[in-house]
Design a binder for these strands. Structure first.
Length: 888
RNA sequence: GGGAGCAUAGCUCAGCUGGUUCAGAGCAUCUGCCUUACAAGCAGAGGGUCGGCGGUUCGAAUCCGUCUGCUCCCACCA
């Protein structure tokens, strides 16, 4: 015990945390293998392989870790599979940028060389985030760490492509896609963010052609936000019902500057009331125009290249960036007399989520996956409750998305990722197979002259989500995806479906929905039962945390400063499900303070000495009894909160039980006076309560709990709190709990008088008590309110010798000779009396209402009658006291 | 433009199917204490006509309507 006395007054997390994490790892306590127990499985939302830990990860992984640790203590075989995502666009653009700094151009070095650099980059920076997660205490099964581009996981992706292709759900088609001129790739609709952007609406004059390509002096006006695309116009459209423009029918107009002749067409897409009612039709650069073009068989003229610059088709401004071209062409139009006016204008513009470049609608050949059947089933999975979304408000948007989903553009014009397993014959026909060898074999069936040299693989890779949607399956059995009906391996059979998924709502459609699709397709079962959607972490003034704003603290700095347990608490304190998280460092401080409180409560009890000559006193007996019941109640509440994913409520419940009930009430009640020992029964109970509290809070605060749990008793070699069974909620005596609460209120009342009268805590008081107060609680009141003698009596005697107060229906009289000012006392009592009379009046008003008495349930009416009685008796006592005081 | 959600103490939130947890919690604030576990602490206290207005009901923070103010999702009216 002597070395224990050296515990410092301040808890020092850093050494404790590193020590225990290393110990857990060494003993592989997080590792899971299938066995006879019930599995509890979580797959990590894989962070970008080259990413670094930010507050969003902290929130997410703290929640995951709480769930997995809880399950582990509940006796389940807990398995949390970690890993990373190759994040094709994000990673590739980082590598491209790095190469650019080195003076290297991606296109020049070619695919092979580029991928070498990319892998090197991945080796250098990859997985750092997983190291960081260990600092947070994440109890992942690191032996199972996976990467979406591991050879076997990549094979799974390719297999699923082939599977869907052969099923007829993957097709190749020319479509208007969202082109990212920065990332040089198509991105999916979901990767485009629309932002209202200030721009201008330019009113341009298109002169009517005289029929020979020469302008007449009549013109029409066209409003556009993109004057640089006029060279790609292939028609001007009006609404067939627009009488203002009937005269235009059959005429042709000339594109300004280049004087190319284009027809006037009629299409009801054009809104009569919008702009000028005339629409320039640019099929190559606008999705709606493209559709109009299809309807009217218009030619498609593409004037913008992959980099967002004008090409030769534009005839003018060739090579200029689209935004530069816009500025220049406005000037040219003005000089040529084609610019009527310019208006300020604001409209939604699409930006690439990854590169923030303005998206250019562009026609190109891409690969698509049909979504209708997949979406239909995935919707059913949620509607039927096979998968619960928490909070369930997300069901609405989930449904909306599933009902309106479009085919998934799965090809990306990148190199970092799984290359599309399609091979082209010299004549343009293609085969889709898992490997080059099989492809060659199949290709030869079409054309025996084909050789490995003339068979060319598709240049594109697959969308990252086309690999991560397999994650809950492929981390266990990479051979499974693409082969539905195949017998899954032992891991997959045991761990699938996983239990809970914790992730942000921003990837509900990208990822969660698609995992459900893949699960249904390949496993015939959903990949998880519950999806807990966290909020987005914001700073305290509500801004989203981001690197660019610089408002995101580095979690590792926080951990170094406050400890991981404190950071976890800080995060959880403000994270009710579905609400955004307003993070503030003061919450982490609160977490640190809580650690310190726990630490010091341990310092207190470990310093006590058992005295076997002592019998358990009455107060110890009642305190021990009470706290056992309290703990049972808390445990029950906490279990209930966990079952509803209300983690922050669970935390707060334990927090209050630990701090208020255990430290402030229980320990103070049983605390031996200085130098005195403690009886064995009380000490043992106290230690066992402490142990239960540690177990209760362990999933949330893994480090300090292991440290103290190891310290508090002799432990066997290798024993750990990780596998201790969660405390089970026993029954509890409501009367006992409510009696103790009444005692607390009485103590608070007396302490309040002390404060008012400025009586030092050490000065013991004499108190008389009247009314219905449980006798067993008397010692509690005596000790905690600092009372020397406590007399239960029906008569307080001379009221001038002290102060009376009332707690519920209990009356107290504190003897304070010489400290009482009768006038002040009367005033205090009269205030109380006035309040009581008011209260009585309101109760009587209710009871006087015949309708209330007739309609309200028995119990409610009875309650009001009791209120009336209590109030009446209080009033009587108050009046008596006031009278007596006045007569003094 | 369509849809969803939110509005309760200075801050962050809890209050499920209307009546003892009905006006709550944590933090912050104020007052008094360095009391031998903890000043990262202890003990007290103050603070909200539950966004506005109507309605249903014996009774509304809770149900219905409406207005206002935020937030998010979906949607490329040139």
């Amino acid at each position: 015990m002597s070395e224990k006395n050296q515990l410092s007054a301040i808890y020092n997390p850093s050494e404790v945390e590193d020590k225990w994490y290393a110990w857990w790892m060494e003993r592989k306590y997080f590792h899971s293998e299938p066995d006879g127990r019930e599995p509890y499985t979580i797959v990590i939302p894989p962070p970008n392989v080259t990413g670094i830990l930010h507050m969003g990860h902290v929130l997410n992984n703290t929640l995951n870790d709480v769930l997995i640790r809880k399950a582990r203590m509940d006796g389940k075989n807990a398995c949390w599979v970690p890993g990373t995502d190759h994040a094709s666009i994000a990673t590739e653009s980082k590598v491209v940028a790095k190469l650019r700094d080195m003076g290297i151009d991606k296109e020049q070095i070619g695919r092979e060389k580029f991928l070498e650099y990319a892998w090197q980059w991945k080796e250098e920076h990859g997985g750092m985030i997983l190291q960081q997660l260990r600092k947070l205490g994440a109890s992942c099964d690191w032996d199972r760490t996976k990467f979406t581009m591991d050879p076997d996981l990549s094979a799974a992706v390719v297999n699923t492509f082939v599977y869907f292709y052969k099923k007829g759900w993957i097709y190749r088609g020319v479509r208007m896609v969202n082109w990212d001129p920065e990332g040089l790739t198509a991105v999916s609709d979901e990767e485009v963010v629309h932002k209202d952007t200030r721009s201008h609406l330019y009113y341009l004059r298109y002169f009517i052609s005289d029929g020979n390509g020469k302008p007449t002096d009549r013109y029409i006006m066209i409003a556009t936000t993109r004057p640089e695309t006029i060279m790609a116009d292939t028609a001007v459209s009006i609404n067939p019902d627009d009488e203002r423009y009937h005269w235009l029918k059959g005429k042709k107009v000339l594109i300004p500057l280049i004087q190319r002749e284009i027809p006037i067409i009629e299409d009801s897409y054009v809104e009569i009331g919008f702009g000028t009612g005339c629409l320039k039709v640019t099929p190559a650069h606008d999705i709606h125009d493209y559709e109009i073009g299809l309807r009217h068989n218009l030619p498609i003229l593409d004037i913008i290249d992959d980099y967002g610059c004008l090409n030769e088709n534009a005839c003018i401004l060739v090579g200029e960036d689209r935004f530069v071209a816009r500025k220049k062409i406005v000037k040219m139009l003005e000089d040529a007399g084609n610019l009527e006016k310019v208006e300020e204008y604001s409209s939604p513009v699409g930006y690439s989520e990854r590169t923030n470049a303005v998206i250019e609608p562009k026609l190109s050949t891409q690969w698509f996956l049909k979504m209708d059947e997949l979406a239909r089933k995935a919707l059913e999975s949620v509607e039927s409750g096979q998968v619960s979304l928490i909070p369930d408000k997300y069901r609405n948007s989930y449904r909306h998305w599933m009902e309106n989903v479009r085919d998934w553009c799965i090809s990306r014009q990148l190199w970092w990722g799984q290359r599309i397993p399609a091979w082209y014959l010299p004549d343009g026909r293609f085969v889709v197979e898992e490997t080059a060898e099989k492809a060659l074999e199949e290709a030869r069936k079409i054309d025996p002259a084909v050789t490995a040299a003339t068979l060319r693989q598709d240049e594109d890779v697959l969308d990252t989500w086309f690999s991560s949607w397999l994650w809950p399956i492929s981390v266990f059995d990479p051979d499974q995806p693409g082969h539905p009906g195949r017998e899954p391996n032992a891991d997959l059979a045991y761990y699938y479906p996983t239990n809970d998924l914790v992730t942000g709502p921003d990837i509900l459609f990208f990822w969660v929905a698609r995992m459900i699709m893949a699960g249904n397709e390949f496993m015939g079962d959903v990949p998880f039962r519950n999806v807990y959607l966290t909020g987005i972490v914001r700073d305290k003034i509500g801004r989203k945390m981001s690197k660019t704003l610089g408002n995101s603290p580095d979690p590792l700095d926080l951990i170094a400063k406050y400890g991981a347990d404190a950071v976890r608490i800080g995060m959880l304190l403000c994270s009710s499900a579905g609400n955004d998280i307003f993070y503030d460092e003061s919450q982490v401080e609160q977490g640190r303070n809580f650690c310190n409180k726990i630490w010091n409560s341990y310092r207190l009890i470990q310093g006590w000495m058992i005295d076997d000559n002592l019998q358990q006193s009455d107060i110890n007996s009642v305190a021990v009894d009470w706290f056992k019941n309290k703990l049972n109640q808390t445990t029950e509440t906490v279990e209930d909160y966990y079952s509803k994913f209300r983690i922050s409520d669970a935390l707060m419940t334990i927090y209050k039980t630990f701090w208020d009930d255990y430290c402030s009430w229980y320990l103070e009640a049983i605390k031996p006076s200085f130098g005195a020992g403690i009886d064995r029964a009380t000490y043992e109970a106290t230690l066992s309560y402490f142990e239960d509290l540690l177990k209760l809070i362990h999933p949330i605060m893994p480090f300090i709990t292991e440290e103290l749990w190891q310290n508090m008793r002799e432990r066997k070699e290798g024993e750990t709190i990780l596998f201790q069974p969660s405390p089970k909620a026993g029954s509890y005596d409501e009367d006992l709990l409510s009696d103790f609460m009444l005692a607390e209120e009485v103590v608070n009342g007396i302490r309040g008088i002390r404060q008012q009268k400025r009586i030092p805590p050490k000065e013991a008081l004499a108190v008389k008590i009247k009314g219905d107060f449980p006798e067993r609680m008397l010692p509690v009141v005596e000790k905690l309110a600092g009372i020397a003698s406590m007399e239960q009596t029906e008569d307080f005697g001379d009221p001038s010798g002290g102060v009376s107060l009332m707690v519920r229906t209990v009356e107290l009289f504190i003897i304070l000779s010489g400290l009482v000012n009768p006038e002040e006392e009367v005033r205090r009592l009269e205030d109380e009396l006035a309040y009581q009379r008011n209260f009585l009046e309101s109760v009587r008003k209710k009871l006087g209402n015949a309708s209330f008495v007739a309609h309200a349930p028995e119990a409610v009416v009875a309650l009001e009658r009791k209120k009336e009685q209590d109030s009446l008796s209080k009033i009587e006592s108050l009046e008596n006291a006031i009278n007596t005081l006045n007569n003094c």
